[in-house]
């Protein structure tokens, strides 16, 4: 192995890291928002809302992310006539996908909050929405914090997939460097190391959160 020719391209690769982080962060915000709305729909008493949310969740969880990304890339301009840059399409695709998984995470947290909490809030005169926002969600989110952190790791890893639509993030810059230097092995080893550095802190956080999760919401 000879890393010398590859190291020259480190700044180039690191500019890809910036895009990777940008794509991950924005699709995380988008996905967690979509997920919350879907979770509330799935638990709603209005049947059509429940059905729509279930359909969305099932569809996005039952098809590969890669095909969702490519599909959106081709379909969005055809159907809407809007020609978006690759980066927003990548963010949109990853966010839509995360939404389906996040919805299930939120839902499991909401269902894990004892029913007595809702009773207590309602008997104080809170509306269903107030009870959800002030009493149930804060507890639910705390309980699913480890799962949310895991989803964040998956998202950073999945952001490599938007390289197929030429989003200039780490993976696609690595492809360029690998082709240019003809040192694929060194490039991929280095890139693996960079991803490890990006996600390792999150992985450590997941372990910590899992250990704490039980003690945070201890009930009595």
């Amino acid at each position: 192995m000879n890393f010398a020719p590859v190291v020259k391209f480190l700044p180039f690769l690191l500019s890809g890291v910036a895009t990777t982080l940008l794509v991950s962060a924005l699709s995380f915000l988008l996905g967690m928002t979509i997920g919350l709305i879907l979770a509330l729909f799935r638990l709603s008493s209005v049947a059509p809302l429940r059905w729509a949310a279930s359909l969305y969740i099932d569809f996005f969880r039952s098809t590969p992310v890669l095909i969702q990304i490519i599909w959106l890339f081709f379909v969005l301009p055809i159907v809407t006539g809007i020609y978006l840059d690759a980066i927003p399409i990548g963010i949109l695709a990853l966010g839509l996908n995360l939404g389906a998984f996040a919805a299930e995470i939120y839902r499991s947290g909401i269902l894990a909050v004892p029913t007595g909490q809702r009773e207590a809030a309602l008997s104080q005169g809170m509306t269903g929405l107030q009870a959800m926002r002030r009493v149930i969600l804060p507890q639910a989110v705390r309980m699913v914090l480890p799962a949310i952190a895991s989803a964040m790791i998956s998202l950073v890893l999945d952001s490599s997939l938007v390289s197929v639509i030429n989003v200039p993030e780490l993976m696609s810059k690595a492809n360029t460097v690998a082709g240019f230097t003809i040192r694929p092995l060194e490039v991929w080893s280095l890139v693996a190391l960079i991803y490890l550095v990006l996600t390792m802190p999150l992985a450590v956080a997941v372990n910590k959160l899992q250990k704490r999760a039980l003690s945070v919401v201890g009930g009595r």
């Binding site: 790791i153 890893l157 993976m171 991929w188 693996a192 996600t199 390792m200």
Partner: peptide, 13 residues
């Protein structure tokens, strides 16, 4: 290592 690097990178590697 295998849970903190993308599968796509692993496949290429």
């Amino acid at each position: 290592l295998f849970r903190t690097t993308p599968l796509l990178v692993q496949i290429s590697w």
